[in-house]
Design a binder for these strands. Sequence first.
RNA 1: GCCUGGGUGGCGGAAUAGGUAGACGCAAGGGACUUAAAAUCCCUCGGCGCUUGUCGCUGUGCGAGUUCGAUUCUCGCCCCAGGCACCA
Length: 859
Amino acid sequence: MEERYNPQAVEEKWQKRWEQEGTFTCNEDGKKPKFYLLEMFPYPSGRIHMGHVRNYSIGDVVARHKKMRGFNVLHPMGWDSFGMPAENAAIENKIHPATWTRTNIATMKKQLQRMGFSYDWQREISTCEPEYYRWEQLFFLWMLKKGLAYKKEALVNFCESCQTVLANEQVEGGLCWRCQKEVKQKQLEQWFFRITQYAEELLTDTDKLTGWPEKVLTQQRNWIGKSVGCHVYFPMENGTEALSVFTTRQDTLFGASFMLIAAEHPRVTEIAKGKDNEAEVIAFVKKVKKQDRVLRTAENYEKEGVFLGCHCINPLTGKKMPIYAANYVLADYGTGCVMAVPTHDQRDFEFAKKYELPLIVVIQPPDKALNITTMTEAYTEEGVLVNSGQFNGMKNTQAMEIIADYLEQEGKGKRAVQYRLRDWGISRQRYWGAPIPLIYCDKCGVVPVREEDLPVLLPQGVQITGEGKSPLATLPEFVNTTCPQCGGPAKRETDTMDTFVESSWYFNRFCSPKEEKAPGLNTQKVHYWMPIDQYIGGIEHAIMHLLYSRFYTKVLRDLGVLNFAEPISRLLTQGMVCKESLTCPEHGYLYPNQVENSRCTICGREVVVGKTEKMSKTKKNVIDPDTLVQLYGADTVRVFCLFAAPPEKDLEWSDQGIEGSYRFLNRVWRIVMEHLDLIADIEKYHGNEDLPEPLRNLRKKTHQTIRKVSSDLEDRFRFNTAISAIMELVNALYLLEKSHDTLTRRVVRETVEAILSLLAPIAPHIAEELWGRIGNKDMLVTSQWPDYDRNVASEEEITIVIQINGKVRSRIAVPADENEENIKKTVHEDERIIRALADKILVKEIYVPGKLLNIVARD
RNA sequence: GCCUGGGUGGCGGAAUAGGUAGACGCAAGGGACUUAAAAUCCCUCGGCGCUUGUCGCUGUGCGAGUUCGAUUCUCGCCCCAGGCACCA
């Protein structure tokens, strides 16, 4: 009896071999072209889930394929190991974040190794270790020196009952997730990176990112949100400091009939001071501060405001404009003040109607006359200026520049560019992050930690309760220090850095993971490998992680560390693996294995099936691949993940179908074993003579499959269709009758080799095993990707579709090089076409070479 | 709400430059092999209709449009997902 496919044995054997031989260890020297392939490193949340497996299976196919294509491939893996879940685990299970994190890393590393991914594990990094974050602290100091890091007040979510700062994720419907009390906004001094200084470069460089998906670039451009307009100065009637406004609609300036200031803007309380309704204003400001920032500016959100008892002057009309504090204006965009033009802005229109404020039409549409008493909505289209003094009669689009010129001449305004992008707040009032290396001295102020004193280590002995101030602030031995400048007593900064900082430069560190000299990056090595040739990760990182990484790269360039401006040449954003979340009314989110017959296994209550969303530890809607690996082996899991959908598409998880992938690998195993004795010691066919038809067809299919799989892997990243094609080739091989004839054996050998080579990046273990069994001495993983012969792959006969008025009526088979004239002749001899055209008049014929002939006919 | 994507059989998906809709696989049904089961192999498989055919109509979220021809392009709508600056 033939030996059966035993994935566990095969996979463990080859994983050991690859490790022993250092197959995936790489270095800089070598004559091959370099290829840096990187997948987004995981947060070590506990166990690998299907989202990771999908991401890393895709990456591994590319890495192994590139290796077979002759590239010197860098394919590293590491851990984005600072973050909130470690602290949550500490609160829940009283386990130290470091212990929890390192245990998770060990587990997940084992899981990844069992998947057979081709990582160079010698380069493994973990961002929570001082060897990593010490350089980040150094970069912080350098950024501070350049003014790229600075401190300012900013709002945080604060729960007064827990006395702690909450992440957005920890606020559920405006309430604290732990105590259900109302969450307040609190002003805190926080550190920021001046990403806005790079806004223009980040924007213009998107044009250079030709290897990025357009949708990601569009999202980044919109996020940066450049708008071109003017600052306009509105003098106060009482002579105090004029209000400066940013507008992109200076053409509507004559229609500005009132002024709006963001409720949380410091100017609001200042202006209202001593006014009759000061108390009312203060109450309003308090109320708005509680409103959700996102909702507040929504189009259909109730617009609210309060009169500040004061006017400013329209600089062009000289008219008095009442000043209101409003909820739909944001303090941190533009100047925080907006000139309201109710006739030509919908939100201002609604506000004006509500508070009975004056309307002035300044743009007249071409087809109708606007009337302020009958208008039901703002007119936001183009038109001709009216009520606009010397600019009357101009098209509003033309008046843009002219009015801007006028404002500049008169000193009443200035052209200006505004970005929606805000500076990157990096302070976190948390323990499990990189400490910000600063010291506060009563005498010297803010003093940077001396470079030679880095790293500022995270202290170990800490109690994490989820309540009270930042954990570091509770440790006197950490907080109390001496000032590096004056030697007097001083206190350390107790905030840690946003974990996005670590992931903004880790790809550089992979190039010299053990570098101990400042700045932790060996320039020669980094410049050999960088930029990343192919980056692969979830679409959910389209904006923040990828934008921060681009920014940080430009900063490191300007700090003289790097010599390039963009870290990623080609980007593949994979869709998410989604699954519905399950919640128990008593126990919250549940893992799939905590549910039986739609009941919670802890308390027996009925579970609520939530919406389908990306797999995450928080939602517990994760699938652990281990059981699948145990059942079917890593190769099957890899094939299944790749076969289920194209990489960019979201994948709603269902384990239906994994049997099919397993069956396919079994079919591959069996067909090779069946032919083993016939093909083991024979050379593959590579001649030119005329073959009998079944062999000719098999060869054709073989070469077509090589062509198809090559282009699917290389150009299209369509692994699902690549696998389909290999399946078809395997099916074709099954249809061939076995024979001892030498020619057949040689052609079969060619096909089998092709199947195994094409399968090598996708299901590497089984391919490697069978490759050895058919008598190859060298490993498949380091062998060459197969070539195809165009002539062998080409079809000698093609099908031409015949349509009448766009509907398929017949098909004819013709030689591939048949000319149009002969095809038309054959078509008109086709019985079904003759019948269909019997009572019709031929109008015209459209011939698409090699594809179809459409006959347009009428009755 | 805003920004960005997506929607094709019972299911996952295919159709690569506007040109054969449903490749490949799953599930289901029928059959072969077997004492039996598993495994394997073969057949059927979008819907409706009939004269059961190399048949007709219909069909790619919904409604319109452009075109000889639209899953593909344009406009409007519905639904789903991602992001919205402290989840990573």
